[in-house]
């Protein structure tokens, strides 16, 4: 017997992978999740972005049948989460924030156990465990107890454990929190691979660049509410278009250069903390060339020039009025990177 589920070969276009309406979770007086609507389409990576305590994990746990839903409805591939939790559990793979594997067992034993629990024969469970260990580069550590595993190895094993029965929908709760940059990159590749395989991935993250890199669409969550949703580009566009940042060689000429650029582009140039440079909103990147030509004509030498899209950090600040840094010190490390 088996409860093996594989991806439906051709899911109807109108059937959403994950659909939530007015999702609410109340903890005492506090509403951890306060009426969230969610539509995740099959085959996409959907990122739920928010600071610590925004309600991301709570929302994910409700969708994964790990927490009762206080109000609202949720459906996964058309099945009601509250009404048929057992069916939902056959459709999803869940990887939690903390490694949900057994410390007392070896990597191979863990995978075999989860395979057996889900109805694989002993032989199939062994074969599947060996395959997954190989795929996640854990074959050498197969017979080691998890207690000796590094953080990255645990995460990999954890994700492997969620894939035993190739569930069509994967929930990942902060899949790279606490991982070093190299291991993070590997995890991103693995997640992209899942989608290439036909899975739908719903992941939470507090890393802005992670959502930007991975997600097809992003929901920004704060205090249990969704404050914005869209593709990474749409979200950035909400905050404004690109901007031209220009530095001049002679700091004494920066005022004049800023005036010229502002006049040509038709917007106000703003001096940056760096004395010799300024930024000006740039709706049309073509205008940058005109500015350069005009500057050369009046003999102002340009030291540096860049056209920047807003970072998701700026998006977050604009949408929630909160600086993400105070909530998640870790994110400062990653938000420094440019999102171009």
């Amino acid at each position: 017997m088996t409860t093996q589920i594989t991806h439906p070969s051709h899911p109807p276009a109108e059937r959403l992978a994950v659909e939530a309406t007015g999702l609410v979770k109340q903890f005492g007086a506090a509403r951890a999740v306060d009426g969230i609507d969610l539509q995740v389409r099959p085959g996409e990576i959907y990122g739920v972005l928010g600071p610590n305590g925004a309600g991301k994990t709570t929302m994910l746990k409700m969708l994964a049948t790990l927490l009762p839903i206080d109000a609202g409805t949720a459906r996964i591939l058309g099945h009601d989460v509250q009404g048929s939790p057992h069916i939902i559990r056959q459709l999803i793979g869940v990887t939690g924030q903390y490694a949900s594997v057994d410390e007392n067992l070896t990597a191979a034993e863990n995978l075999r156990l989860f395979g057996r629990l889900q109805g694989l024969s002993l032989r199939d469970a062994r074969a599947r465990a060996a395959r997954l260990l190989e795929q996640f580069a854990l074959t050498d550590a197969a017979d080691r107890q998890i207690a000796q595993f590094s953080g990255g190895m645990r995460r990999r094993l954890d994700l492997a454990a969620s894939l035993i029965t190739s569930p069509p929908v994967i929930f990942l709760d902060e899949p790279t929190t606490g991982l070093d940059p190299r291991t993070r990159g590997q995890m991103w590749e693995t997640i992209r691979g899942l989608v290439a395989d036909g899975c739908t991935v719903l992941l939470t993250t507090q890393y802005l660049d992670e959502a930007d890199q991975l997600a097809d669409r992003i929901a920004v969550i704060d205090h249990g509410r969704m404050v914005a949703e869209g593709t990474p580009d749409q979200l950035k566009a909400k905050v404004g278009g690109s901007s031209l940042q220009l530095g001049v060689r002679d700091a004494g000429q920066v005022e004049e250069a800023a005036r010229i650029a502002g006049r040509l582009i038709g917007d106000t140039a703003v001096r940056t903390p760096d004395r010799a440079s300024f930024t000006v909103p740039l709706a049309d990147a073509d205008r940058a060339g005109e500015v350069l030509i005009a500057l050369r004509e009046v003999g102002i030498a340009v030291e540096s020039l860049s056209v920047q899209k807003p970072t998701l950090d700026e998006v977050f600040l604009a949408l929630t009025g909160e600086d993400t840094h105070q909530n998640s010190p870790d994110s400062s490390r990653t938000t420094g990177q440019e999102v171009a």
Binding site: T2, T3, Q4, T6, L91, R128, R131, Q135, S166, G193
Partner: peptide, 21 residues
């Protein structure tokens, strides 16, 4: 990750397309 697919189909052929119970 294509290996996932191939292993699913080779080791668990009967399981493919099974409806949730």
């Amino acid at each position: 990750t294509a290996q996932i697919e191939s292993s699913t189909t080779t080791t668990l052929p009967a399981a493919y397309d099974v409806q949730p119970r």
